[in-house]
Design a protein around this nucleic acid. Structure first.
Lengths: 226, 226
DNA sequence: TCGACTTTGTGAATGCGTTCACGAGGACGT
DNA sequence: ACGTCCTCGTGAACGCATTCACAAAGTCGA
C-alpha cells in the first residue's frame, strides 16, 4: 500500500494532457454510477458512461496506478478517490471571478464549482455601479480590492469574465497579485509569464466550429460525385 | 475567380479538425488587426496576434487555398472573407437556446453570437414560471413550443443550457425537431444519432484541469530529487 | 483444488497534428 | 531589367495520442 502510494506519486508526474482532460469526465460518470448504486465498474462500463472507448479508459487510468481488479473491474469509490487525488481536488482551491456581467453571474451561481471543491473567494467588477451588489451570497468588490482578495483569500486561480478589452489588464493584475492559474472567458488572446497556467473557453468559437460542420453538411456533398 | 472557388470548395472537404478549431481565432485576430488599420499581415504577425506559431498559421491557411503573397503576407480583408466562407459564416444560422437559467441568460445576451452571424430564433425553458419572461429582447417560450420554433425558424443549431438531468431529454427533442448540430453546456454525456454534430463546453472541467496543474506545481516538485 | 472465464494493464502499430526547413515565387530598389 | 530580399506553401521528420491485441492476473463455480 505504501509502496503503491510512492509509485503513484512518481507516475502522476507525467500524465499526458489528453488524459488529464478526460479525468474530470470519468469523475462525473463515476458519481452517476455511485448514485445508481453501482460499487464496481468495468472499463467498458465506465467508457459507455463517459462517452469514450474502453481502451482509452484503461490507458488513462493506468497512468494513475494499478487500481483495477482483473476479471472484475474498478471499485467505484476507490477510483473516485484516486482520480480526485490526481486532479488535486482533495484540497480546496480558492477562486476569484473578475467581471460580474451576465457570464460572471452565471459562473458565480454555477453549482458545479462548489461541488468539486472550488470556493469562490471574491467577485470583482470594474463598474462602480455594480460594486456592493450581492450575487450568489457574495458582495461584489471593486477592482482596487483585487490584490487584497487574492492575498488574504489564498486565491491561486483567477477567472476572467470581462469584456475582451479589459481582459489583458485584469490578467496582469491577477498575475501581479500572485494568481498562478487563469481561466479566460473573454474573447481575447492573453499573454502570461512562464509558470502561470492559462486556459480559455470561448463560447462563440464552439458555435463557429458547429457552423463549419453544418455548412459542410448542407453545402458540399454533391460536389464530390464524379 | 470561379476556378478558385471550385478548388476551394474541393479543399474545404478535408480541413483537419485542429485547423478548423483555430480558424475562429484567426478571424478574431484579423478583426483586431483591421481595426488597428492594418491592411496586410504576415503569417508571423497573425501568429502573434492569435497566440500560435507561424508554421501553424501557414499550414492552416493553406487548407483554404493559396491566398497569400510571397514576400508580403496576407491581405487582411481577403483573408477574413475566405475564413468566414470556409466556416460557413457568410450565411446566417438560426439558434435555439434551451434552458434560461443563469447560463442561458448569459448566452442569450452574449454579443459574440450576433456579431458572428448567429441569430437567436428562440429561448425555451421548461419552468412555467419563466415562460413569458423577456430576455435579451426575446420572450421565453415553453418546452412544448420547441418543435414549432425549430421548424418555422429554420433552426439548425440547438444550445443546451439546462441542468444535467434534463439534457438528454432536451437533446432528443431537438434532434426530433430537426436540429443537426448541438452545443451542450450541461455537465452530462449526451447520445446523438449519426449525422448530428455534438460539441460540449464544461465550465467545471476546465477548472479541474487547472486544479491538476496547480496541484503539480505545489505538491510534487521535490519528490524527484534522487 | 482446478479449470474456465472475465477483465485489466501494456507493448506495438497506427494515425493525426505539429514543427522543421527549404524551394518557389513575388515585391521592390537600383 | 535584374538581383536581392522577404515570405509563403509544403514535403519530410518528429512526437503525441489512440487503437489494437494479447499475456497476465484475478474471480468464481463445480
Amino acid at each position: 500500500m505504501s509502496e503503491q502510494g510512492g509509485f503513484a506519486a512518481a507516475r502522476r508526474r507525467d500524465i499526458p494532457e489528453a488524459s488529464v482532460a478526460r479525468l474530470p469526465v470519468y469523475l462525473r460518470a463515476l458519481s452517476g454510477l455511485a448514485e445508481a448504486g453501482r460499487t464496481t465498474v468495468s472499463s467498458e462500463g465506465l467508457a459507455t458512461a463517459a462517452g469514450v472507448n474502453s481502451a482509452k479508459v484503461r490507458k488513462d487510468l493506468s497512468h494513475l496506478g494499478s487500481y483495477g481488479t482483473r476479471g472484475v473491474g474498478y471499485e467505484v469509490d476507490e477510483l473516485v478517490h484516486h482520480i480526485s487525488n490526481a486532479l488535486g481536488l482533495t484540497q480546496r482551491w480558492s477562486v476569484v471571478i473578475v467581471g460580474v456581467g451576465n457570464l460572471g453571474h452565471a459562473l458565480a451561481g454555477y453549482a458545479g464549482f462548489a461541488s468539486r471543491g472550488f470556493r469562490i473567494a471574491g467577485l470583482i467588477d470594474a463598474d462602480p455601479a455594480r460594486v456592493g451588489e450581492r450575487v450568489a451570497g457574495l458582495t461584489v468588490q471593486s477592482i482596487g480590492e483585487l490584490d487584497a482578495v487574492v492575498r488574504t483569500g489564498g486565491v491561486s486561480i483567477g477567472v476572467i469574465a470581462t469584456p475582451a478589452g479589459a481582459a489583458q489588464d485584469v490578467c496582469d493584475q491577477l498575475v501581479a497579485a500572485g494568481v498562478t492559474s487563469i481561466l479566460n472567458f473573454a474573447p481575447a488572446v492573453l499573454q502570461v509569464p512562464d509558470g502561470v497556467d492559462l486556459r480559455k473557453v470561448d463560447l462563440a468559437l464552439e458555435l463557429q466550429i458547429l457552423s463549419f460542420h453544418e455548412h459542410r453538411k448542407s453545402g458540399v456533398p454533391q460536389a464530390m460525385s464524379s
